[in-house]
Design a protein around this nucleic acid. Structure first.
Length: 937
RNA sequence: GCGAAAGUGGCGGAACUGGUAGACGCGCAAGAUUUAGGAUCUUGUGGCCUGACGGCCGUGGGGGUUCGAGUCCCCCCUUUCGCACCA
């Protein structure tokens, strides 16, 4: 018996790779490291070990990266291809709570299962580099990075993070003063004070307020069911938690924040440095949401209280006929007129009940309340009403707007609902006017239309928000009339600045990252609180701050946010330093923390002296970071933005050598599968559904077929374990890659798996005599045609591998293999390259055949076959002959045939001659090697 | 509403800078082999017309550029994804 016994072969080779440490990757300083070798860092997105185990959709990306890793090794690269586990966070903890087991236990068990499943796929990870975020030796450095952020500030002039001590020095030296609101300003600025005027408390306040990690009271998304606060990114558009779909409420809370907004500009700009899919870059750009405009100051009539607004259209300032503050705006309290107080309070209460997101999800009908206050338009001098309305968000800009109803759709709707005046200050183009003119003006001329618009912009049905020419925007010392919008913007911004009434400003949608969670299963903060309520960093040599052992680790599901660690033993919570009593920070870090920097730790996973050794970091990260990073689009903003942010901080502080972590990113598609619902709309197990006459039945009941992402919720998951058992993991690997392009989402079809399985069996039979078990391979040379096919295949497969086109690479290998079927004996010069080319995709069978071909070392480092150009050239080609663009025949001509030869051969073709009969050839198009086209009358 | 990606046989999908549409695989059909089933091998397989040679149509729909369009341009339809009062 010498058939293709994949079970024995796969087990044997997986064991050998392990025993021989085949995929150990030496780095600088390690035994066996070769500094002359180029590196290639290929990385999968950090998986989260869930309790359910893997389904065949999960390893799609892992198989792809493994193929790249194996291919690159054969091309002489020192390949870093590690794997680890992101294991802190909500899902693990939820799972643990549901099963009443400590999260550490369930997490370790899940990791175990996942590691076993991954190993069964024959992935060539360097398992000696495995890391897990829950390991204190790992999270020690997560905490260390947090301390780096706590110990630095962002210098807006240098546009980078610097140690906070340097800020202190600059302040002490008088190079910067501190403004009333705590901002750093130039010495001598009005209202600002020098360092020497500040007492110790004030100084600490200033420094603490400038740290990259700082504490602030902010409105948060509080999820009582999960017992924790969530980041904006973790809340859905419906105002529910992304995990678990529980309601989320807004409330103010003192929280740790990370100053990611300081990096908004660089996060945006540096997208130009990376090779990422354009849609992902766009997603990040939109998330950062940069907009240019100006800030302007309006003063409240009477009190003179300044209200700052942000606008992208400062050119429409003359058209501001009212103002709106967000309901939570701090000035509402003081400016509201006594007789309006009750209505204003009622509206504010109503708004506070709803979360930011829930508020936005509701109808677009505009609501609001007049505060009774009046403000002065700084350019027109008009007294205008001040409203509060929930269409203005406290979290964006200044939380207050100038409303220009003629040129902003939201303001337009609000003005109509509340009977507020509109004032046109931009003249629209004629096309817009005509398209929006009321019926009565259907025949009006251009001037009449423009006049009508100025008289009554509301009659045109919607706000004109485009660019145009400024009108009705002139006063004694400022003339905008006649200026196109961009110039009008520049002119008025300059005027505002000169008069101290405002300045140009860039605004981002991106908010600072809310970094505290109240859950147990996360990294503790390396922070202590002193008697006066100030944060004190835990000294580096005391790291890690280990998570205390607790029997009751459940979150406190309540309306009042209480960290789970509040119930930790007092011996953990209270730290005595001499006669000082310090309390530990009780929040933990969010899910994303550990995955923000894991790619760095893989480079030097056992280093207890530093985060990563600089020499190793440079070797594996230069020049553009991770060379290939593969994962799903779902991480387009959160993980990828957070990781870039941390990386830039580490870069600024000199701990890493590249400005970006991931040079090339690739998003794999999803694996979809049929799913079935019964008459109640409930999903039934897809593997128990039977098909009869095009209809679907489950336990005798008819069910309807639907379609979706493979997973637990649709009950349509297929386990890799079943596939490996039935067909072997080489077949599974091959099938997943053969399904279609890596980036596409495509349907799983177990029935189709036999196709690639047959290919492997046929390959086996081509090289191994099934009866005797001997080789069917001969040292005699291949004939010319086969040799040509071989070299063409090498060229095509190589090209496919370079662009991750594994589906087409496999197709070419199948073709080559099919060509060997009729042969009595297979020439070694074909068999060996075929096995080598298959090796990255189906490594076990390839190793086995390689050994049987007489090689005693693994093919993992065997050189990739090279196509010989001599055998790529052909001496004759089949030329397509067209008449008037339609194919009428094919003729064989010598490869370099000139036009006359080709033309004569073509015209001699009977069918071509027939079509040319009675016509005059006007023109001949000849594409050498491809076709010849006769253009005839 | 705004933005992005994608629509090719019964199915998954190929097709480089415009140059034979449907590679490769599944499925299906016929034949060979086999006691049978399975496996294997051979041949065929976009639709329509034709005994055959061959012809006509065909890449979501409609127009255009070109000797020639799945590929380039314009309009429209459908699906999926992301964002969604961001001033």
């Amino acid at each position: 018996m010498s058939g293709y016994d994949f079970r024995a072969i796969e087990a044997r080779w997986q064991r050998r790779w392990d025993e021989r440490r085949t995929f150990r990757t030496p780095g600088p300083g390690d035994e066996g490291f070769r500094p002359d070798q180029p590196k290639f860092y290929v990385l999968d997105m950090f998986p989260y070990p869930s309790g359910a185990g893997l389904h065949v959709g999960h390893p799609l990306g892992y198989i792809a990266t493994d193929i790249v890793a194996r291919y690159k090794r054969m091309r002489g690269f020192n390949v870093l291809h590690p794997m680890g586990f992101d294991a802190f966070g909500l899902p693990a903890e939820q799972y643990a709570i549901e099963h009443g087991i400590h999260p550490r236990e369930t997490t370790l068990r899940n990791i175990e299962t996942m590691r076993r499943q991954l190993r069964a796929l024959g992935l060539s990870y360097d398992w000696e580099r495995e890391i897990a975020t829950i390991d204190p030796r790992y999270y020690r450095w997560t905490q260390w990075i947090f301390l780096q952020m706590f110990g630095s500030w962002f210098d807006p002039e240098a546009r980078r993070a610097r140690p906070i001590a340097e800020l202190e020095q600059e302040l002490a030296a008088g190079r910067r003063w501190v403004a009333e609101d705590g901002a750093l300003v130039a010495p001598g600025t009005e209202g600002a004070r020098p360092w020497t005027d500040l007492d110790e408390t004030a100084r600490r306040d200033v420094l603490d307020a400038h740290r990259l990690a700082y504490v602030d009271e902010v409105p948060v998304n509080w999820c009582p069911a999960l017992g924790t606060v969530l980041a904006n990114e973790e809340v859905t558009a419906e105002g529910r938690s992304e995990r678990g779909n529980h309601p989320v409420y807004r409330r103010p809370l003192r929280q740790w924040m990370l100053r990611i907004t300081a990096y908004a500009e660089r996060l945006l700009e540096d997208l130009d440095l990376v090779d990422w899919p354009e849609p992902i870059k766009l997603l990040q750009r939109n998330w950062i949401g940069r907009s240019e405009g100006a800030e302007a100051v309006f003063r409240i009539d009477g009190s003179g209280e300044p209200v700052r607004v942000f606008t992208t259209r400062p050119d429409t300032l003359f058209g501001a006929t009212y103002m709106v503050l967000a309901p939570e705006h701090p000035l509402v309290e003081s400016i509201t007129a006594p007789e309006r107080r009750e209505a204003v309070e009622a509206y504010r209460r109503e708004a506070a009940r709803k979360s930011d997101v829930a508020r936005q999800a509701e109808t677009k009908a505009k609501t609001g309340v007049d505060t009774g206050a009046r403000a002065i338009n700084p350019v027109s001098g008009e007294r205008i009403p001040v409203f509060i309305a929930d269409y203005v968000l406290m979290g964006y800009g200044t939380g207050a707007i100038m409303a220009v109803p003629a040129h902003d759709q939201r303001d337009f709707e609000f003005a109509l609902a509340f009977g507020l005046p509109l004032r046109a200050v931009v003249r629209p183009d004629e096309a817009w006017l005509r398209a929006h003119a009321p019926d009565a003006l259907a025949d009006a001329g251009a001037d009449a239309l423009a006049e009508a618009y100025v008289r009554d912009p509301a009659a045109f049905g919607e706000a004109f928000t485009g660019e145009g020419v400024a009108i009705q925007s002139t006063r004694d010392d400022l003339a905008l009339d006649g200026l196109p919008t961009p110039e009008a913007k520049a002119r008025i911004t300059e005027w505002l600045e000169r008069r101290g009434l405002g300045r140009g400003r860039v605004q981002y949608k991106l908010r600072d990252w809310l970094f505290s969670r109240q859950r147990y299963w996360g990294e503790p903060f390396p922070i202590l609180w002193d008697e006066s309520g100030r944060p004190v960093p835990v000294p580096e040599d005391e790291l890690p701050v280990e998570l205390p052992e607790m029997d009751d680790f459940r979150p406190s599901a309540s309306d009042d946010p209480t960290p789970a660690l509040a119930r930790a033993p007092e011996s953990w919570r209270i730290v005595r330093r001499g006669d000082r009593v310090l309390r530990r920070e009780l929040n933990t870090m969010p899910q994303w923390a550990g995955s923000c920097w894991y790619y760095l730790r893989f480079i030097d996973p056992r280093n207890d002296e530093r985060l990563v050794d600089p020499e190793r970091e440079r070797y594996f990260m230069q020049p553009r970071g991770v060379d290939l990073y593969v994962g799903g689009v779902e991480h387009a903003v959160l993980h990828l933005l957070y990781a870039r942010f941390w990386h830039k901080v580490l870069y600024d502080l000199g701990h890493v050598s590249t400005p970006e972590p991931f040079g090339r990113l690739f998003n794999q598609g999803y694996i979809l599968a049929w799913a079935y619902v019964d008459e109640r709309g409930v999903y039934v197990p897809a593997d128990e559904v039977e098909e009869r006459d095009g209809r679907f039945w489950w336990k005798g009941r008819e069910v309807t077929r639907s379609y979706g992402k493979m997973g637990k919720s649709l009950k349509n998951a297929v386990s890799p374990d079943e596939m490996c058992a039935e067909y072997g993991c080489d077949t599974l690997r091959l099938y997943e890659m053969f399904m279609g392009p890596l980036e596409a989402s495509k349907p799983w079809n177990t029935r189709d798996v036999v196709g690639v399985h047959r290919f492997l069996q046929r390959l086996w039979r081509n090289l191994v005599d099934e009866r005797g078990g001997g080789l069917r391979v001969t040292d005699e040379p291949a004939d010319d045609a086969l040799r040509r096919l071989l070299h063409r295949t090498i060229a095509q497969v190589t090209e496919s591998m370079e662009r991750l086109g594994f589906n087409t690479a496999i197709a070419r290998l199948i073709e080559l293999n099919n060509a060997l079927v009729p042969l009595e004996r297979v020439p070694r010069e074909v068999a060996e390259p075929l096995v080598l080319m298959l090796a990255p995709m189906a490594p076990h069978i390839a190793e086995e055949l390689w050994e049987r071909l007489g090689h005693d070392s693994s093919l993992a480092f065997a050189p990739w076959p090279e196509a010989d150009p001599r055998w790529l050239a052909v001496e004759s080609v089949e030329l397509v002959v067209q008449v008037l663009g339609k194919v009428r025949g094919k003729v064989e001509v010598p490869a370099g045939a000139d036009e006359r030869t080709a033309r004569e051969a073509a015209q001699a073709h009977p069918n071509v001659a027939r079509h040319l009969e009675g016509r005059t050839v006007r023109k001949v198009i000849y594409v050498p090697g491809k076709l010849i086209n006769f253009v005839a009358s």
